[in-house]
Amino acid sequence: MGLEQKTGNLGVVTTSLEQVVNWARTNSMWPMLFGLACCAIEMMAAQAPAYDMSRFGMELMRASPRQSDLMIVAGRVSRKMAPVLRQLYDQMPDPKWVIAMGDCASCGGVFNNYAIVQGVDEVVPVDVYVAGCPPRPEGLIHGVMTLHEKVKREKLKDWA
């Protein structure tokens, strides 16, 4: 971005800008509709009225990667699905985040075999891992809040 180089040492301006942008990013983070297996059921439950995720600004799951900021990899990723996952990730506009939901997406879980990718961090950079098989909707929301904490700590000089 180069804003810091242009403005020089304007600590107050840049930190408050940082806070404003991070606040905006955490409070409207649209996830991508990317359910692969049983974890997707819990992801749907997290969007349903009981654990309404739109309280966190996740109004709706976007089916298009070009309109989404957050990819929740919900379920096991087979070797055949891995290039698709990477392509969808590449199509998402920056800034983008990834949550590996559940054991299978995080590290393969029980599926320690040749057909399943042993953790999606082989393919895409993962920000938050959520444990559970599948995680409860609360578990997913806890993961989302962990991600929010991480995004709030992001620095201006790392944006570029």
Binding site: S106, C107, D121, D127, V128, Y129, V130, A131, G132, P135, R136, E138, G139, H142, G143, T146, K150
Partner: peptide, 12 residues
């Protein structure tokens, strides 16, 4: 406890 989410694998 079901609140298990990590930013790093080593924390798990």
């Amino acid at each position: 406890n079901y609140e298990l989410s990590f930013t790093d694998r080593h924390q798990s």
